[in-house]
């Protein structure tokens, strides 16, 4: 580790430093894993930080509308990499069909119920959590109902406007709300690691990464990713993964990581926002910031 650092080394080492700070400072720490490329890079960075181990439980919010391949991939990696895997969901809304795909509510209300509310109550431990039993290879009700006080999230500043205003360690109040206008300062290698009872922190090790950096790093480290990101011969692929009713594939013939990097550097996506395939962002004026102030990832 004496060679000159390139830009990926710089990003990687900063993220590793942040992950270790989070691990040293928070007793009840969890990491959100959406199965997408960003949080999978985050998971990989945790293996870097902890020398092949992941001593932090991974939390997945299962809306039940995820593309099935994502769940299969999640469980396969959880077993292979010996992950403490937990999932939570909004059972009530699903049973009562208060969802957009069921025609019950609009997209934003659906996101709020299945993602924001499910996340809030899974983190707080008020709603049931399900933990993967590595021997039986099935999910069981998690007996631990303690609230998570530190939650590591794979948000990047370049994704959309509201995320650019995040700190590496961003406080959330007891209702998971985010006060964008009055955030604590953050400088040098010091972060907000103290927090009042009832509040928690969102920790963002990937804040400085761009979509291109993520793919460059996936290539350099050979990180396994879901094949939905690649064109399987239909001329279409997913650029960003979410629930199938609200995430649309983009036209692209990129069949692998190299093609995607080329596409982002100079090709057709160089000037088009990554989440352009996410319908909920457009549902009202400031869709995502409204969701995020309220606790959305």
């Amino acid at each position: 580790m004496a060679e000159t650092m390139d830009h990926l080394d710089q990003l990687e080492n900063r993220s590793v430093h942040i992950l270790r700070e989070a691990y040293a400072n928070f007793k009840n720490l969890g990491m959100l894993w959406s199965i997408g490329k960003d949080s999978t890079v985050l998971l990989w960075l945790a293996r870097k930080a902890f020398f092949g181990h992941v001593p932090i439980p991974l939390i997945h919010i299962d809306t039940s509308f995820k593309i099935p391949e994502m769940i299969e991939y999640r469980d396969r990696l959880a077993l292979e990499w010996n992950l403490t895997m937990i999932y939570g969901q909004n059972r009530e809304a699903l049973e009562e069909k208060r969802t957009f795909p069921d025609g019950g509510v609009d997209r934003i209300a659906c996101c709020k119920a299945l993602k924001t509310d499910a996340l809030k109550h899974t983190l707080s431990g008020e709603w049931p959590r399900y933990r993967l039993n590595h021997t039986k290879k099935t999910y069981e009700l998690d007996r631990n109902t303690e609230a998570f006080t530190g939650v590591i999230v794979g948000a990047r500043a370049d994704e959309e406007g509201s995320r650019s205003k995040e700190r590496y360690f961003s406080p959330r109040n007891a209702q998971s709300r985010w006060d964008v206008g009055d955030q604590p300062p953050e400088f040098w290698n010091q972060f907000k690691t103290e927090f009042a009872p009832g509040t928690h922190l969102r920790i963002h090790p990937l804040l400085d990464w761009t979509e291109l950096n993520i793919w460059e790093y996936i290539r350099r480290e050979s990180i396994p990713t879901v094949s939905l990101y690649y064109d399987q011969g239909t001329g279409k692929r997913y650029r960003s993964l979410g629930c199938y009713p609200c995430t649309h594939a983009v036209d692209s013939a990129a069949t692998g990581v190299d093609d995607i990097i080329l596409e982002l550097r100079s090709g057709k996506f160089a000037n088009i926002a990554e989440r352009s395939g996410r319908a909920q962002d457009k549902a009202d004026g400031g869709g995502l910031e409204t969701l995020r102030r309220d606790g959305y990832m």
Partner: peptide, 12 residues
């Protein structure tokens, strides 16, 4: 523009 999810940003 950012409020509408476009990449250039006030904070950055």
């Amino acid at each position: 523009e950012q409020a509408q999810g476009i990449t250039i940003d006030a904070a950055r």
